[in-house]
Design a protein around this nucleic acid. Sequence first.
DNA 1: GTTCACATGTAACAGGTTACATGATTGG
DNA 2: CCAATCATGTAACCTGTTACATGTGAAC
Lengths: 191, 191
Amino acid sequence: MHGNEADVERYRPMNVRTLCLGILWFEEATGYEIRKQASEGCFSHFVEASYGSIYPALNKLTDENLVTWRTETQEGKPSRKVYSLTEKGRAALIEALHETPKPDVIKSEFLFVGLFAEHLDKTFMTSVIDTRIAELEADLARLREEMATVDHSGSRFAIGYGMALYEAELNYIKNTRGLIEAGADPRQAAE
Amino acid sequence: MHGNEADVERYRPMNVRTLCLGILWFEEATGYEIRKQASEGCFSHFVEASYGSIYPALNKLTDENLVTWRTETQEGKPSRKVYSLTEKGRAALIEALHETPKPDVIKSEFLFVGLFAEHLDKTFMTSVIDTRIAELEADLARLREEMATVDHSGSRFAIGYGMALYEAELNYIKNTRGLIEAGADPRQAAE
DNA sequence: GTTCACATGTAACAGGTTACATGATTGG
DNA sequence: CCAATCATGTAACCTGTTACATGTGAAC
């Protein structure tokens, strides 16, 4: 009864496949909901995924018997495919988690722009900085809300982690923006 | 004298092309040195690039007259192609910087593992956490060193930014590790 | 009637990485 | 002679995004 299960892939942690397994660990969900959690929910500040990768991933996971699905017909909404983890899927996630996590990666276009601040005009830099501050404050507010609704300790750790980072960024930017906002003459920055 | 320059690409900020332009802004460099700066130097905590993308990028930038190169023969080392920005390249970078920077992205496998801490054994989590702490401390030390050698205000901003983040992460992990280290029974975490 | 949220999916493309191929020169 | 560092490059692959295609039913 095993057939072509032999070619189950090696699990590199933290691709969309593993993300799907992770989200499904907590509760069954549709592809649509998985995307929503990845880009709005408690995972959203440190992962990312779009439909174009999630749906194919779910199909593949189905082929490998790591997830199953049933059709759920709803009143007032289109019917949907609700996925849930199988025993094998659960085991696969745990296995994936045992790979040593790669170091965190921060990608920041904001910092890159900041490097060349002295060659951009002050008005522009001010607006870039203000935008970044607004974004950070919005993110922080969202996390604060989520923190209030979540009970699970791992999730609280992750949310708190995000909050700590965002707060640090915010404080740093507010206190140090002079360094990149001083306009064409950086020697005035200390003033 | 313009010929096929018409098909100069739109600049989406923060791909390897733009990264090369950015590094070359400060000083001329070889592909080898650009990679080094991207993975070790002052850029390294918020960008990434490998040979396989840098060399082709430099060739393309040459085709578009955004950079030029000369061969430098060295004694005791293989000769090398030293790239530098052209006027046009300088202008292209400034243009690219005017695109509104996309929000920072944090990718953290560590946090993902933390979410499932209660299903992993305590020894493993302890080692994951200790590893992460060691990494952060090493990164911090590296940034502190760099901060001491750098004078340029934009660079100091970027380095300080990294330090602020790493310090916040470090403190958070040290203070809160109990949440994900408590072992199989998360209800004991508060103890 | 049209816009919105729900819902699933694909194909073309972009943008990288990895591993390989090659080679000079130094130092142990 | 072997390993390490410097140095350049390519080809195969991987992974994910964007944009498109399609459709339901609610609410305005």
